[in-house]
Amino acid sequence: MKLSTMVCALCMTATLLGSVSAQAAEGKKWTTVRIGTEGAFRPFNFTKPDGTFDGFEIDLYKVLCKSMQVTCEIVVQPFTGMIPALQAGKFDAIMSGMSATDKRRQVIDFSVPYSNSGQTFATLKNSPLAKLPDTGMRFSLTKDEAGAIKELDKIKPALQDKVIGVQTASIAATFLNKYLQGVVKVREYKTTEEHDLDLAAGRVDLVIVVVN
């Protein structure tokens, strides 16, 4: 699909169905679009030392907004409150590495995907957990849940009582609560940057991160 046919849908990722319908009925002319992002989720979006934003989604929104000939404004919002802030009208769209889950679809609408990323356990190089079975292999919970669960069973003994850091309200947190409850201890953080720091400091054994 050519970029020109994707522009409107992508930029309006995660806009509310009701809101979009109402604005379309009123014939609203979009001149400014406010985009909510976390600014702390590499490589999708992050804040540089000088306070400016960078990342894949930052580059993407600039291209899309230029193509639509609208002015776009970034609004920084913690991920845990991203959807409530959208519903409250703090911004018009979300671009913040948000996966389109069934639960989220109950309250917001999603564009066509602009990224397809997996997630993986990450630990320190000198950790015994760096050599878990099937390291480097990919498994899909959507296409082959039974097969993925079988692989998880292989590593459960090694993960028993280990502390895993995840971002609050993320699909990683949902994954741990569903598939590893009672096996691992989950420690939630507001940002992925915070759990990375605790991993480096030895306060958690593993974290779950995005991998392309």
Score class of each variant (00 low, 15 high):
Gly39Ile: 00
Glu38Asn: 10
Leu86His: 01
Val76Thr: 11
Cys72Asn: 06
Pro43Asn: 03
Pro43Trp: 03
Lys62Ile: 07
Cys72Pro: 09
Thr37Met: 06
Ile58Trp: 04
Gly27Val: 04
Asp50Lys: 11
Phe46Val: 06
Gln69Asn: 15
Phe46Glu: 04
Lys62Asp: 07
Glu26Ala: 12
Thr32Val: 15
Ile74Met: 14
Phe56Ile: 11
Gly39Ser: 05
Thr80Cys: 12
Ala85Asp: 12
Phe46Asn: 03
Leu86Met: 11
Pro84Met: 08
Cys72Ile: 08
Ile83Tyr: 01
Asp50Leu: 07
Gly27Lys: 01
Phe53Tyr: 13
Met82Ser: 00
Phe41Ile: 07
Gly36Arg: 01
Val33Phe: 10
Tyr61Trp: 14
Val76Lys: 12
Cys65Glu: 03
Ser67Tyr: 11
Ser67Trp: 12
Leu86Arg: 02
Ala40Gly: 10
Gly36Leu: 00
Lys48Asp: 06
Asp59Trp: 13
Asp50Ala: 05
Cys65Asn: 04
Arg34Gln: 10
Ala85Gly: 11
Thr80Val: 14
Ala40Lys: 06
Pro78Asn: 07
Pro84His: 04
Gly51His: 03
Phe46Gly: 01
Ile35Gly: 03
Gly55Lys: 00
Thr80Glu: 15
Met82Pro: 01
Ala85Leu: 10
Lys66Glu: 09
Gln77Ala: 05
Arg42Ser: 12
Ser67Leu: 08
Asp54Lys: 00
Glu57Pro: 05
Val33Gly: 10
Val75Lys: 05
Asp50Tyr: 05
Val70Gly: 07
Cys72Asp: 02
Gly27Asp: 03
Thr47Gln: 11
Trp30Val: 04
Leu60Gly: 03
Val33Trp: 08
Ile74Gln: 10
Val33Met: 13
Lys28Gln: 07
Trp30Leu: 13
Val63Trp: 04
Ala25Tyr: 06
Thr32Asn: 15
Leu86Asn: 01
Phe46Ala: 02
Gln77Arg: 10
Glu26Ile: 06
Val33Glu: 02
Phe41Trp: 05
Asp54Gln: 06
Gly27Leu: 07
Lys66Ala: 11
Val76Cys: 11
Ala24Glu: 15
Lys62Glu: 11
Met82Tyr: 00
Pro43Ala: 07
Phe56Cys: 02
Leu64Tyr: 00
Pro84Tyr: 00
Lys29Leu: 10
Lys29Gln: 13
Gly36Met: 00
Leu60Phe: 13
Val33Gln: 06
Asp50Met: 07
Glu57Ala: 05
Phe79Arg: 06
Trp30Ala: 06
Met68Lys: 08
Thr31Trp: 12
Ala22Ile: 08
Gly81Pro: 11
